[in-house]
Design a protein around this nucleic acid. Structure first.
Length: 505
DNA sequence: GAGTTTGAAACT
DNA sequence: CAGTTTCAAACTC
């Protein structure tokens, strides 16, 4: 049971706008509780609300490559097609978008669940809605399937931005985007931190095609994107092509990119873990140095190619999660499996198997590696591993394989997959991406930027409350100090608990 | 390449 | 939910 359960809240973050919402003075803070619950005390017993808040605290998304502004479907648009429905429905509009049978769709992730999994619902709603409401930086709010016929181009926008039907209607213009040179092969690459998944939306293709970078960005599709990307330059207004090119270059060379809308919403354009891979594929002329950076060597490459690695299933008919192809939502292709049913010839059996898996575990096909805020950690295993003998330092361990540290979520024994482990440090040296900061089970590691932010938020909330109530400064100081003490208490308590957990392994 | 080890998934 | 079995990948030789 969560030790913080049932305690009163004194501070919370409004999910609708991200503002701090001070509540009455209480003993402990939910945000802190959420942080610690997730980071150090994760386990059963959390309410739905807590889970929601927790995701909000730890997930984010990034728009990596907005050459121009492109419709980014709001979360609401995915509500009509759950992941299960997508997997099971052979007439999914995603398949129509591809113009291919389901068997050729290798990544089933563009669903509500997938987006919710990797993205912060609050953040994406906040960002998309804010942008959408802004005329200058308007994203079209079209859905994937319902407004594919036309794109609306705002001639009043200097850069030919795509605008929402609503705003376009206000302007009294409606043009099919595919006409003449208005078509802009836009690529919006969203690194959804959950498992490094990436969406590539291309507006010059008949429909937007969501991709999963981990599983679906094959050379063919990316080469097409590359061609279209290059053609973009000629179509962009003067001066903008180079900007876009520079932006792309910076994104893929690892330079932090920030796009700030006129509404004040800032998108971080720092490349995600697979950005360099996308860059490589899009830009085959990348330098050797670039190729050797990031995840293109060693385990990163293994992971990158893993989705395309043929399976060798012999008994499962590739219809159970033992089969990586099946688990990735892919059909077997060029595999070495025996008696495979994970193909188009066995749609019935496959659909039944998918349904069966989803009945057992609705999240069976979700990425196992969750995400946290960008710039702090790469991610965390959503369920945690259960390793007993490998020390979590071999690829048997899903955390190690995903190149993330084990966390308190894990139930592993004798874990050495954490920051201080000498063995881990040695193995880290063998890895190519040592620049990534991983979560750790170090007790002091709980004092993350999130915790600091939450602490400051709590103090600020109390300061605002004191000001609102017109307390004298001495009283206000006392309130703030008491709150600070409560925060410290929670931190220390969490440290002790974390230490205990680790030493008891 | 065969055999062993490992841990997730499936089953009871 | 816990224990056991099945399974395929990772690993070793």
């Amino acid at each position: 049971m969560n030790e913080l359960e049932g305690q009163e809240y004194s501070y919370r973050r409004d999910l609708s706008d991200g503002s701090l919402v001070p509540l009455h003075h209480t003993h402990e803070s939910p945000r802190m509780a959420n942080l610690f619950s997730h980071g150090m005390h994760s386990g059963p017993g959390y309410s739905r609300m807590e889970e929601s808040l927790r995701e909000d605290d730890y997930t984010t998304y990034r728009i990596l490559h907005p050459l121009t502004y492109d419709p980014l479907p709001p979360v609401a648009h995915f509500g009509s097609a759950s992941y299960s429905e997508y997997l099971l429905a052979p007439s999914s509009h995603y398949q129509h978008a591809l113009g291919q049978p389901y068997s050729s769709i290798r990544s089933p992730w563009p669903s509500q669940e997938a987006f919710h999994y990797g993205m912060s619902s609050a953040e994406i709603c906040r960002a998309v809605n804010t942008i959408s409401s802004d005329g200058a930086d308007d994203y079209s709010m079209e859905g994937y399937s319902t407004h594919q016929g036309f794109r609306h181009v705002n001639r009043n926008q200097p850069h030919g931005l795509l605008v929402s039907p609503h705003d376009q209607h206000k302007m009294g213009e409606k043009l099919p985007v595919q006409t003449s040179n208005i078509c802009q092969p836009v690529q919006v690459v969203c690194d959804v931190n959950g498992g490094g998944q990436v969406v590539v939306l291309n507006h010059c293709s008949p429909d937007q095609i969501p991709h999963s970078m981990m599983t679906d960005l094959n050379a063919e599709s990316l080469s097409k994107l590359s061609v279209q990307s290059c053609s973009t330059e000629d179509q962009l207004p003067h001066g903008k092509a180079s900007d876009a090119r520079d932006s792309e270059k910076n994104v893929f060379t690892g330079l932090p990119q920030t796009h700030k809308t006129s509404a004040g919403v800032t998108f971080n354009l720092t490349p995600g873990p697979y950005a360099s891979q996308l860059h490589q594929t899009l830009c085959p002329t990348a330098t050797v140095e670039q190729e050797e950076e990031g995840h293109t060597k060693g385990r990163g490459r293994v992971k990158w190619e893993k989705s395309k690695r043929p399976c060798n299933c012999t008994k499962s008919q590739c219809l159970k999660l033992y089969c990586e192809c099946f688990a990735n939502g892919e059909v077997c292709n060029n595999c070495k499996c025996v008696n495979c049913y994970n193909n188009t010839e066995h749609d019935v059996e496959r659909s039944q198997a998918i349904k069966s898996c989803l009945e057992r575990n609705p999240g069976a096909f979700r990425p196992k590696i969750g995400s946290r805020k960008q710039g702090t950690v790469k991610g965390r295993h959503t369920k945690g591993c259960n390793c007993k003998r490998s020390g979590c330092l071999k690829n048997y361990c899903e955390c190690y394989e995903a190149k993330i540290m084990c966390t308190s979520t894990c139930k592993c024994a004798g874990c050495r997959n954490y920051e201080e482990s000498p063995s881990k440090k040695r193995s880290d040296r063998d890895r190519s991406d040592s620049s990534i900061y991983y979560p750790t089970r170090c007790p002091l590691a709980c004092i993350t930027p999130d915790v600091v932010e939450a602490t400051c938020g709590c103090l600020l909330a109390h300061a605002e409350e004191a000001e609102k109530e017109g307390y004298i400064s001495a009283h206000a100081e006392r309130m703030i100090l008491e709150e600070f003490g409560q925060c410290l208490t929670q931190i220390v308590r969490s440290i002790f608990k974390s230490t205990s957990v680790q030493f008891n392994v």
